[in-house]
């Protein structure tokens, strides 16, 4: 196995892809969006629960590759407690990380919590969409709250 592959599939990622924190939809979400990655058939519905302008939880259901599942799980850990504005900032940061082609992001990486383990994905252009799926869903949820 190459070092790159080990970097892509770190143990934390494989664990999250199986444990799927936040898996299971709830009846009372404040926003919900469904995202599909047509190239490989990854699918995900992600719900946002907010109280007093702060994210209380993120819940989701979906099926897809280990990267997309782990990414949703990691996002579920990161999101609670963030203001809506902070959440938008983290999404932007994560997107920057994913498009860094392996270079990473310099400063603010602690803002992404454990999701920083997905940095290795940025070397695999074809997999960036997998990692982004849950984050794009959260972005769509936030947009619904604005509307």
């Amino acid at each position: 196995m190459s070092g790159d592959l080990a970097g892509l599939y770190q143990q934390v990622i494989l664990d999250h892809s199986r444990e799927k924190h936040g898996f299971g939809l709830q009846p009372d979400a404040d926003a919900s969006s469904h995202q599909v990655n047509p190239t490989c058939g990854d699918e995900l519905t992600l719900q946002l629960h907010v109280s007093d302008g702060v994210i209380s939880s993120v819940t989701w259901e979906g099926a897809g590759c280990s990267i997309s599942m782990a990414s949703a799980s990691l996002l579920t850990d990161l999101a609670p407690g963030l203001s809506l504005g902070d959440a938008r900032q983290r999404i932007a940061l994560f997107r920057e990380l994913m498009h860094s082609r392996g270079a990473g992001i310099d400063d603010d990486d602690e803002l992404l919590g454990d999701a920083i383990v997905l940095e290795g994905v940025s070397k695999y252009v074809a997999r960036v969409k997998c990692a982004m799926l849950a984050w794009v869903a959260l972005e769509a949820d936030l947009a619904q709250l604005d509307a």
Partner: peptide, 13 residues
């Protein structure tokens, strides 16, 4: 237990 995309990535390696 393993998504096709992950299988393909593993084989590509």
């Amino acid at each position: 237990g393993v998504h096709a995309h992950d299988v393909g990535q593993f084989l590509d390696d």
